[in-house]
Write a protein that binds this DNA or RNA. Structure first.
Ligand code: MN
Ligand code: MN
Ligand code: ZN
Ligand code: ZN
Lengths: 149, 149
DNA sequence: TTAAAGAGTTAGAATGAGTCTAAACTGCAA
DNA sequence: TTGCAGTTTAGACTCATTCTAACTCTTTAA
């Protein structure tokens, strides 16, 4: 599937890059389009292989560079499970990750503000947290269409 | 500091190893003693260097092997933060990890059952989770003696 | 119109945590 | 004794990620 961004997403990307002092480039557009097109938490290699379909000369190093830039600009989150390859997620809403033990698929789990609050409340005085990472490991029985994309 | 286990801990270790079909060895005793002596979530290299003080011939490969065995027997948990070296934790109570951005230190955060429950409740139907990992990233102001060991 | 500067891209080398391999060692049992 | 199964060991290997240095592209300055 050839990737390209609609005007809206391209503007969003350009604005976020600009705020971080970075430029919009064709490579960054393609890589970002790949992330938006299939939100299955791809690894760098998966992003690379998908992006190459629309931009054959693209290099793996550039994919690493682009993804790092996006993370720096707050456009994308890194997702780590144990020591596996880092995966990338363009969902900016607060959410946890569920990793299916059998398929390896990663699903987004919405995080209601009340749960965030109860989590923050377990920190003893003096502990100030900016980032909370929550990851589940288990099995999915049904194929919930909302969470299986 | 030379590491050794008291009779009670040695029995616990032997029993857990036995249930997993594994034997108690001098190397496993030393490595386990290192984990119990200083519960600061050491990396493999840190465990290796501490353990070598009481057992100079010990090899790094054996430390990897011992720790893997302990994890398999449920005696120890692996703790990962982003792509840093894996750390090891002998605290078997349900707890989260707080990583100090500045010092790199990792602290245990108690996880009340009610919070565990609220976390499990955010899973959509069909999602069955065995393991939940929670990690905070931030700063510690005070040196809470309960959490700074 | 050219030249210099700066940002981004690229291929390939380097890094390093973790894993694998094969030989040596240990404790126990036939 | 001897054999065997599990364990330990040094060192080779893997592979995701980072680094390096050359190259390209765009913008700015002369
Ligand atoms: Mn928008
Ligand atoms: Mn006990
Ligand atoms: Zn996600
Ligand atoms: Zn811990």
């Amino acid at each position: 599937m050839i990737q390209s961004l609609n005007e809206h997403n391209r503007e969003d990307l350009q604005e976020a890059l600009g705020k971080g002092g970075q430029k919009l480039t064709p490579q960054r557009e393609v890589v970002f389009a790949v992330l938006l097109a299939q939100r299955d938490h791809p690894t760098v290699d998966e992003v690379f292989n998908r992006a190459r379909e629309s931009m054959p000369g693209l290099s793996l190093a550039t994919v690493y560079n682009c993804l790092e830039t996006f993370v720096g600009c707050g456009l994308v989150r890194q997702v780590n499970h144990e020591r596996e390859s880092t995966r990338y997620c363009p969902n900016l809403a607060p959410h946890a990750h569920f990793r299916d033990k059998e398929t390896g698929q990663v699903h987004d789990i919405e995080l209601p503000p009340e749960v965030m609050k109860s989590l923050r409340s377990i920190l003893p005085p003096g502990f100030d947290s900016e980032v909370i990472e929550i990851s589940f490991l288990g099995r999915t029985k049904a194929n919930d269409p909302l969470h299986s994309n």
